[in-house]
């Protein structure tokens, strides 16, 4: 288990790494509203999160997340 607030901070870093800019994230944001977050970047962001958090994330489940909040909760409870 990782604290959701830690996941949010780490997700922001992963987006920064993979999309190339610092983004203030909100739980209600969707991936499709974020510049550079395409299907390839999605895989890179999740792998980046895994590496940073040292945890394994169910890739298929990430596609069922509608918002960043859902993704943060998924990772936090992994």
């Amino acid at each position: 288990m990782v604290e959701a607030s830690n996941v949010a901070v780490t997700l922001r870093q992963a987006i920064n790494d993979e999309c190339g800019y610092d983004l203030e994230i909100r739980r209600d944001m969707t991936a499709s509203s974020i510049e550079g977050w395409d299907s390839l970047a999605h895989v890179r962001i999740i792998l980046n999160l895994e590496a940073r958090l040292g945890t394994e994330i169910d890739m298929d489940a990430t596609y069922r997340c509608e918002t960043l909040g859902d993704l943060i909760d998924l990772v936090a409870t992994a």
Binding site: C19, G20, Y21, S32, S33, I34, E35, G36, W37, D38, A41
Partner: peptide, 18 residues
């Protein structure tokens, strides 16, 4: 920005990086 991303992706299947 969201509207721009959605429009470009919907028609060209590419997400603008910036």
């Amino acid at each position: 920005r969201t509207a721009v991303i959605r429009a470009v992706f919907s028609v060209f299947e590419v997400t603008p990086k910036r």
